[in-house]
Nucleic acid binder design. Structure first.
Lengths: 214, 214, 214, 214
DNA sequence: TATGAATGAGAATTCATTCAT
DNA sequence: CATGAATGAATTCTCATTCAT
């Protein structure tokens, strides 16, 4: 059993090394890197990657899962600190949420990839894991939100957080540009799309929450 | 002068045939089809496709452009019919907008693809065209929105519509599933994500607009 | 007949325009340009090119033919001016021939292409035309060479000129580099191949001729 | 450490199999064969080829490198056997060199391809390797030539061998014909170009060397 | 467990040439 | 004669994944 535990630790550590390598390469290149590169960056052989992940996409879904877990963990205190009801809730949440998102690194680009790319070649099970974690994270946070702010009826907290996530994801996609197209934004006709994501996000979330709280 | 140059109409009609073929294949398969298939589906030869579009991605951006043009065209009357100020604006817009989106067909999946995939292999110029049309459509609609509802200050209409677009896009991604994963939604842990998109969208937009109008 | 003659002139003029366009594009790009580009550069339509040349290669063989015709024309006076026998012949010819080659523009790169590329897709007849012109040019010049210098036996002039051509062509290939590889020449190990073509050619030809004249 | 990494020998042997397959196909067809065909001929899969060579052109440059290495190896004894100075050198070298070239197989057609085709799509590094080997081979042989024959000044041996190579390459191009055009040679106007390469080469080289040695 | 050699499906794009008008 | 739209053959190279060792 001791041997097993140790093996389990080693296994987990290998997994983490692979995840970090994949994450780093993705950050550097802006596209899903080839498995061979991930293996090399992790100091392992190509075949070894497949002892830890069944497909390349599974690696990135795992990354996504980690990212969301961290985000939800950070979200707890923010929700707990919200004032009961009233006008201040929206503004306060929007500000804190904006900071959380800013600190979440590559979560958004990765999440945007999820639908378009990752889900194409993914065994069902990791997908279930990810979606389940997402659903449960939102549900738990929703309950907490309702408890602290008095938002009613039951379920409306979950719904609001789902919308919050959607707005965040969509806004990031509307405002983010691949490096090659950044220049376009300087053209006068595109001024309307050249907005600061962080600032825009805070305003949008604040509006959504004001509306949800009336 | 050229005896057999294609007339502008003929050329446009060929283009439309290609666009429709591409659109249909995309709808059927859920992924960007190979150019060879598009050509065949359009009754043309592979090389011919490249007389009308420089890259495969350009085809789909053109589709996107058309879709948005139609959406904006339909949006005009909706905005014009909004009541001046007041509480009713949000609910009325949300209902009509939901219908517009429902009628827009594949616009959303295609738009979701834009960032992740289409922008990878696209000459700048069609990208500029698309983004410019989008920016101008939003700006024009924003002005109209302000004029009819009295929303102030200037620019807030444009901003609200940008957020509306983002929320729509993000929500679609959060709630849509590739066919292979639809079964997952029946599992109890995922009940929270098994929501009707149309209904959810209407609620979310209504909240956002209520918040924007206070 | 007047009409015919005029047509004939027009036809020849069109041909020349095409040849010049092809030549210019080849000079600019260093590779055989697409037919479409040649047509555009000549202000004609793509199909029109095929009214004047049966294949793309035929265009470039025609260019080659022109180039050699000019070279042979210029070679005549050089041969006529050679001293009868003696040691001075080699040096004098080498010097003049080097100038001719230098003035011949793209003849060498084109000639180098002939074997590797042009002959792959060429109707027999233009090939015959070209080779015949080449053979006759060399034979005529050989006779002239023999007459003036007293080189014997009969045929040895032709042979010497054939060898002269071969040495020129081979030397150009050994010493010429595509732009992308010019940098290589600065490396010390490659110093031996970094020679001035004009100078090298003169020396090589002089040696060959000295040997031929004993 | 790697349990099943290929040994250097095995890897080299695979490489050789690929080279031989490529060589054979080139000989049979007279054009660079598609990679797919090379792979099939070597009993390997297409992708495998790219584990050994980065581009198709690299294969043929490797072939060229091998060929020249063999030629230089065979050239050594020939140079060592040359008489010191005097009139006999040229004739003796020409005869032996002609035999070497005759035994070198496809070296010449391949070398003729180098400029026109191979250099178009070649990573710099294999190109450097090849050119460096060529330069060093010529330099070393040149020094040997000077040592044995007393040819002076220093460097003139290298120069003479460069010219020898150029003359050989150019002559081959002037006299060789693709199979489809061999028939042309029977026409009387082309009699001047219908020469036996081996014989012609010996004469040309002899003349060049006589001239170089005075 | 780890390795890394081998696999081969997969797809975009170019461009010479034809031919209906 | 001229046009230029249409054709479709042709080929490279990448890369996820497997599996013998």
């Amino acid at each position: 059993m001791a041997r097993n535990a140790l093996s389990e630790d080693e296994r987990e550590s290998r997994r983490q090394i692979l995840l970090e390598a994949a994450h780093r390469l993705y950050r550097e290149r802006g596209v899903l890197p080839p498995v061979a590169d991930i293996a090399t960056a992790a100091g392992l052989a190509k075949g070894t990657v497949y002892l830890y992940f069944r497909t390349k996409e599974e690696i990135f879904v795992a990354l996504l899962e980690d990212g969301f877990a961290r985000l939800f963990a950070a979200l707890g205190p923010v929700l707990d600190g919200l004032p009961r009801g009233g006008a201040a809730v929206a503004a306060q949440f929007a500000r804190h949420f904006g900071q959380l998102v800013a600190a979440s690194g590559d979560l958004l680009p990765l999440a945007a990839l999820a639908n378009a790319v990752l889900e194409q070649n993914l065994p069902v099970e990791p997908m279930r894991r990810f979606k389940t974690a997402l659903a449960q994270g939102i549900a738990a946070a929703g309950a907490r939100l309702e408890a602290h702010t008095g938002l009613a009826p039951a379920g409306s907290g979950e719904t609001l957080l789902l919308h919050t996530y959607a707005l965040t994801l969509g806004l990031w996609q509307a405002l983010s540009y691949p490096a090659a197209l950044k220049i376009l934004l300087k053209e006068p006709e595109l001024r309307g799309l050249d907005r600061d994501f962080a600032n825009e996000l805070e305003n949008a979330i604040a509006a959504l929450w004001r509306g949800a709280f009336h």
